[in-house]
Simulated scan of single mutants.
Amino acid sequence: MAQTIPGTLRVSNDVIADLAGYAALECYGVVGMAYTDAQDNIVRLLSLGSLRKGIDVSTCEGRVKVDLHTVLEQGVNMASVSCNLESAVRFTLKEVAEIDNADVTVHVEDLRANK
């Protein structure tokens, strides 16, 4: 049984982004995270080492806001995958980082065939 330890837990935005990225990759239908080059308007699929480029983390009025820019597998139900993805990220942030009030938004940037 876990004991409560007095104190404060502080988690950086980069850690939150990493947790969200790894939780996202575990979800069915997610090919990876995306980065959109605003200048060239090209969507790039990010490698495992640079997942946090496709995730924006901010705070507003005491709530953590996570924006996931994703590439989904072609042929999946985007609404179902997005709902599962939001739920998985919220669960991971609550269990690992003790963040209860995360707002998670999924942006589908591209669809690709998963090889």
Rank of each mutant, 00 (worst) to 15 (best):
E26C: 08
D40E: 14
G75Q: 08
V15Y: 02
V30N: 01
S80V: 13
M78C: 15
H69P: 00
N84P: 04
V81T: 03
R112V: 08
V31N: 11
G7M: 01
V30H: 00
G75P: 07
E95P: 06
R112G: 05
L9H: 08
D37A: 11
S82E: 01
V76Y: 10
V43H: 05
I99L: 08
A34E: 04
A20I: 11
G32Y: 03
R90S: 14
V71W: 10
I99E: 00
V89N: 13
Q3V: 05
V31W: 09
Y35S: 09
D103K: 06
K94Y: 07
D100Y: 02
E73A: 15
A79D: 14
G62L: 09
T36M: 10
D37I: 01
R112Q: 10
R52S: 11
F91D: 09
D110C: 05
V96E: 10
C83T: 10
H107L: 04
R90C: 14
L48A: 11
P6T: 00
M78G: 13
D37T: 08
E26Q: 10
N77I: 11
T4L: 14
G32D: 01
Y35K: 11
H69R: 15
G7K: 02
V43E: 09
L46D: 12
S12F: 11
K115I: 06
R52V: 14
V31R: 10
G29T: 02
A113P: 04
H107M: 06
V30D: 01
S87M: 12
K65W: 14
C60V: 06
A38D: 15
P6D: 01
V31E: 12
